[in-house]
Each structure stands twice: as structure tokens, then as C-alpha cells.
Design a protein around this nucleic acid. Structure first.
Lengths: 184, 184
DNA sequence: GAAAATAATGAGTCGCCACTCATCTTGTCA
DNA sequence: TGACAAGATGAGTGGCGACTCATTATTTTC
């Protein structure tokens, strides 16, 4: 992998930013032309950097998951054991609610980015958050990581697709958290 | 609205059944041609009965919601107050898991059936189930119907898109139900 | 059982969109 | 600064899929 030329690197960034915005607004079915236009670049340039629309979508999803994974690690490092998991949970749902991309991807509407593997990268840090919460007595001991991941996915998708208001989101998450918490 | 000719009524049913199957398998992005083929009918016939692909999708969604609404009413009538809500909840999630249609619709991937209004029809019977559960002390008194609807939508979508196994589904729903239940 | 509706047929139209490629432009490096 | 490689450009191509309509077939009706 040799060095990219300066303008190429700049354009790559612009395209990613534009794609993130366009897909967040219009969903994954938005056209590549629209991304190119928003990036101020010809369509050929988009395809030079991302040979396939799927590659472009994949790059965005990867970036999002990178950010989330890092946020989880940060919470595990700096957050209070009893609340870090819930804080992260809330954070993910808020992120998802602002992005139509992920949900459209997951729905398999013609697109088939493999999200399974990248998603699994989240499982480890989430598992760590869960363990700490359980040790602190904030979550029942019999809750398993895959259950938390399932709840996370469910809340994220629903928040996005259902257009939850912040108020409804808080109230609904409170119920989920209540279900995770230790009794008594 | 005059009477349909006999063959027309027959074909309409065939088309609905075929569409239900095709969209359940392939998602809402499946082509109308495929529906026509499965129904054993020419494509023009499909468009005679449903002038738009959206109309076809809408008809299917409406039928599904009709069935669910009826099931909710049945549970309210015949089920035990403490368990009817949970039973219905489980039923909906199972139904959803078998149908890619609804999720694809909700994701707004180019399609825009208005699901808001039909969904609201579910809210009343669900509200009834909730009230009875609360009176029986099986659900906390401060839980509101829109929260239950939100959880329902979340679980349904995730079960479908995430490909939950029956086992994971049960364990995850258990956590949600725990969150709804009265403490103590 | 024939005329008059009503419906079915399916090749064809149209627009959209992912992707290509011959040509022109720009950055890099000596 | 000039030569060359790397990149950008955007009109063009191909395929797909929603939707149309002139023609043909089936019911219904009297």
C-alpha cells in the first residue's frame, strides 16, 4: 500500500463525510451520485476510492463501530462500574437514532454489508462493561453478553425506525435497564 | 364498489398469498414480477388489483395488523390477566421473526407505506392488555402504553433483523418482561 | 348463447442507478 | 521546470424493475 497523493487523501475524506451525511439522511438507498455531488467530486472519483457502493457503506459502518468500540473502552476505563454500561447503552441508541444507515443495512434491502463480524468486535468491550456492572451489583448475575447485545440492537433499531422522541426513548430505556438490574 | 368477477376475486387472493410469501422471504425489495410468477398470474394482473407496489405492500401489512389486533383482543378476552400481555408480546415477536416484510417497510428503504396509522390500531388492544396486567399486579403501575409499543417494535425488529435464535429470543424477552413487572 | 362488460395477458416503455473508460488534470520528484 | 505517474472527470453503458396498454380471454347478463 503506497502513499496516496495529497488530493486523493483529501477527496477520500470528503467522500466519507458526504456519504455519512447522505446515508444518514436518506438511508442506504440514496444514490452514489448524490454522495459525489455532496462531496463536490465527480462520480468516477467515488468509484475509484470505493469500487462498489457496498464498499462505501462498509467503510462507514466500520468507522461507526470503531467509534462505538472506543467509547465502550473509554467507559470501561473511566466510568463508574454501576453506571458505565447504562451510559454506553444510551450513547449507542442516541447515535443510532441519528443514522438511518445502519438500520437500512441491517434490513437487507438489497444491500449486504456483512455486519456480523464488525458487530462482534463490540461484544468484547460490552462484555467487559457488563462484568463490571455485575461485580458492582448493578446488574443481575445471570444476564449474559449476547442478551445485552440483543437489547442494544433492538433499542437502536427501534429508536431509529420508530422515530422515538427523546422522552419516549428515556422512558423505554429505563424499563430495559430495570430488567437488567439486580432485584432488591 | 361493485362485485368482482369470480376469476378476479380468485386471482386477488392468489396474489396476496404469493406476495406475503415472497416478501417474507426476500424482503420488500423483491420484484413485482416475482410475486406475479409465484401467483401464477401475469404481471399486468397484479397491477390491475394493486395499482402500485406500495398498495400491495400496504395490503399485506394491513392484513398482518388485522390478525395481530384480533389476537390481542382474544388474549384480552380469554387470557389470564397476569400473563396475557406477555403472551401477546411473545406472539408478535414470533410473527415478526418470520416476516422480513414489516422490518423492510419500517426501514424506509425506498418504500413508504404509512405504518403509523395502522400501528396505532394496535395501541388500543395493547393498552387494554396492559391495564389488566397492572390491575392484576403483574406490571408496574407507572408503565405507559407507548412504552410497551416501543418495546414491542424494538423486539420485533431485532428478532427479525438480528436473526435471533429461539433461545436468545426467550432470554432477551425475559429481561424485558422483568423490566415491566412490578418489583417485589 | 351472443353481446357487453370485465378481466388477463405480456411485450414494451421509461427512468433510475451502479459501474466503466477514454481523456484530461494535477501532484510529485529529480 | 519538465516528465511521468497518479488521480479526476463525466458522458456513456447495461441491467433491472415499476408501470402501461393494445390485444385477447373469460364472465355475466338477458
Amino acid at each position: 500500500m503506497t502513499q496516496l497523493r495529497a488530493d486523493a487523501r483529501r477527496n477520500r475524506e470528503r467522500i466519507l463525510a458526504a456519504a455519512e451525511a447522505v446515508f444518514a439522511e436518506r438511508g442506504a438507498s440514496a444514490s452514489t451520485e448524490e454522495v459525489a455531488a455532496r462531496a463536490g467530486v465527480a462520480i468516477g472519483t467515488v468509484f475509484r476510492h470505493f469500487p462498489t457502493k457496498n464498499d462505501l457503506l462498509g467503510a462507514i459502518v466500520k468507522a461507526l463501530l470503531d467509534r462505538l468500540t472506543e467509547e465502550a473502552a473509554r467507559q470501561a476505563r473511566e466510568g463508574a462500574p454501576e453506571t458505565a454500561l447504562f451510559a454506553f447503552f444510551t450513547h449507542v441508541v442516541e447515535e443510532a437514532a441519528a443514522r438511518r444507515t445502519v438500520a437500512a443495512l441491517l434490513s437487507g434491502g438489497g444491500v449486504d454489508v456483512r455486519v456480523d463480524k464488525p458487530l462482534r468486535r463490540l461484544e468484547e468491550p460490552v462484555g467487559a462493561l457488563l462484568r463490571r456492572a455485575q461485580e458492582a451489583g448493578a446488574v443481575r448475575a445471570d444476564v449474559r453478553p449476547d442478551e445485552v447485545m440483543a437489547l442494544l440492537a433492538a433499542a437502536s433499531q427501534a429508536a431509529l425506525l420508530g422515530g422515538w422522541t427523546p422522552d419516549l426513548r428515556d422512558r423505554t430505556l429505563r424499563i430495559v435497564f430495570e430488567g437488567l438490574r439486580a432485584r432488591g
